[in-house]
């Protein structure tokens, strides 16, 4: 830690040093494609948000019209309300389950290596897989999930076909898909806890809960805050699983801002309008990130 801190100070250039011109060259190889293909289109998108544009012809300046339209569009409101719900379901589930799974795998149980593989594996598959496998699992009449729920006397739940459940259905698949990242972050942090501290706590007669509460949890605090932030940002941008599982329906009940942006841009070719909604989403992500950092007083 101290070595790292030292080099950070060093790198900040507290001590006057020569300018390494070669640094620019080394950075350029990455920075040029990054600015060309990742930043420029975004800047253009920001400009388009203030115009009316359907690709053919040049964008026509319209000032804030797209924004006022977005504020009056009930489907925009629904999409933004939905991501807050997604956030409320997915973020706590991913954080709590990820932590529990990591605590389990961190113990020296037989087969814990296998468990680690299984918990992380979903993260590496593509959205297409989610779209097919989970739509099939959550099928109302022939899906596996409803089949096993019926053993508990639970009636068939229309996971993806009703306005009441579709958001929950998509969330379940999302938790399965996203959990690996949180799990690995927690696991790495747990493995960083020096064994002696835990051993000392055992010797002191601390029980499992006390050890978790007073030894492990304080150590994990920064990681928890990071997991929550990362998962929240990724949930605010939820798209692929929505697109492949429900396409936002029924009645927009599982849509998300990015899904709505996609359908306005690609399906309706209203690029100015789509970009304006994207800016609203960006503002929301920014606000939430700052609010969270302020509340948790953590440097992420």
């Amino acid at each position: 830690m101290s070595a790292a801190a030292h080099s950070v100070d060093d790198a900040r250039g507290r001590t006057p040093r020569e300018i390494d011109k070669a640094g620019y060259v080394l950075v350029a190889f990455f920075a040029i494609p990054f600015f060309l293909f990742n930043i420029m289109p975004v800047l253009f998108g920001f400009y388009v948000a203030f115009t009316r544009w359907s690709i053919v012809g040049s964008p026509k300046w319209e000032g804030l019209r797209n924004f006022t339209r977005a504020f009056n569009d009930q489907w925009v409101a629904v999409a933004f309300k939905n991501i807050l719900l997604y956030g409320l379901i997915i973020v706590p589930c991913v954080t709590v389950l990820g932590l529990l799974f990591a605590l389990f795998v961190n113990k020296r149980y037989p087969l814990s290596g296998l468990a680690r593989t299984l918990f992380f594996a979903p993260t590496v598959v593509s959205a297409t897989v989610i779209g097919l496998v989970w739509v099939w699992l959550l099928d109302t009449q022939f899906g596996l999930v409803n089949h096993y729920l019926s053993f508990f006397g639970i009636d068939n739940i229309p996971w993806l076909t009703s306005t009441r459940w579709s958001l929950v259905g998509v969330s379940i698949a999302s938790v399965w898909w996203d959990l690996g990242l949180a799990f690995v972050l927690f696991l790495a942090a747990l493995q960083d806890i020096p064994g002696e501290i835990n051993d000392a706590a055992i010797v002191d007669g601390a029980n499992r809960w006390q050890r978790f509460r007073y030894v492990i949890l304080p150590h994990l605090r920064p990681v928890i805050s990071m997991v929550v932030t990362l998962q929240l940002i990724s949930t605010l941008r939820i798209f692929s699983q929505v697109y492949v599982m429900t396409n936002g329906g029924p009645a927009s009940s599982s849509s998300s801002p990015i899904h709505y942006i996609y359908s306005m841009a690609i399906v309706r070719n209203l690029f100015g309008y789509a970009s304006a909604i994207a800016i609203l989403l960006f503002a929301l992500i920014l606000a939430i990130t700052f609010a969270q950092r302020f509340l948790l007083k953590e440097r992420v």
């Binding site: 080099s7 790198a11 990054f34 289109p41 801002p257 990015i258 942006i261 789509a274 992500i285």
Partner: peptide, 30 residues
Amino acid sequence: ALARMHFPGRNLLFVIFLASLMIPVEVSVI
């Protein structure tokens, strides 16, 4: 370069790199 070398604009570059993670890239696609 960002970690070991010293040149003006280095920290700004890094901040831009990090901030780009928050932009919904879907805007840039068209």
